[in-house]
């Protein structure tokens, strides 16, 4: 089961999307919707994956499919808080080279300044 939550901050201005639980081929659609909402609402997005226990290629594909739009729309986008086992899956596909990944929220906020 995927858990999605969002938080919008005005000062400093950023959109925080929190993804928890399990993202697989049956739930990745919700991740896609959450990211689309975030991209429509803000130019500075941080994604909290602290509570993410599992992600399959369906979820990784969603992240990959927005990279071009992030660039085109000049959106600053940072992921943070991944458990090592989840980070390893990003690493296998080389997604860690394509998306900015930080250890914690403070580092993520610094990166979108």
């Amino acid at each position: 089961m995927i858990k999605i939550d969002n938080h919008i901050s005005d000062d400093p201005a950023y959109y925080q999307l929190s993804i928890g639980g399990e993202v697989d081929a049956s739930s990745s659609i919700h991740l896609e919707e959450g990211l689309k909402d975030a991209m429509a609402a803000s130019k500075k997005i941080i994604v909290d994956l602290t509570e993410l226990e599992y992600i399959s290629s369906a979820g990784l594909g969603v992240f990959m499919s927005i990279i071009q739009d992030l660039e085109n729309k000049d959106i600053k986008f940072v992921i943070y808080g991944m458990e090592p086992k989840v980070f390893e899956v990003f690493e296998i596909l080389g997604l860690n080279q394509l998306i900015t990944i930080k250890e914690n929220k403070d580092q993520a906020l610094e990166a979108i300044k």
């Binding site: 290629s57 990784l60 499919s65 596909l93 394509l98």
Partner: peptide
């Protein structure tokens, strides 16, 4: 190409 065309397929077997 996946990034450019916003395609999502083929990644599972790669993993």
């Amino acid at each position: 190409e996946i990034i450019r065309k916003r395609k999502k397929g083929g990644l599972g077997i790669m993993l």
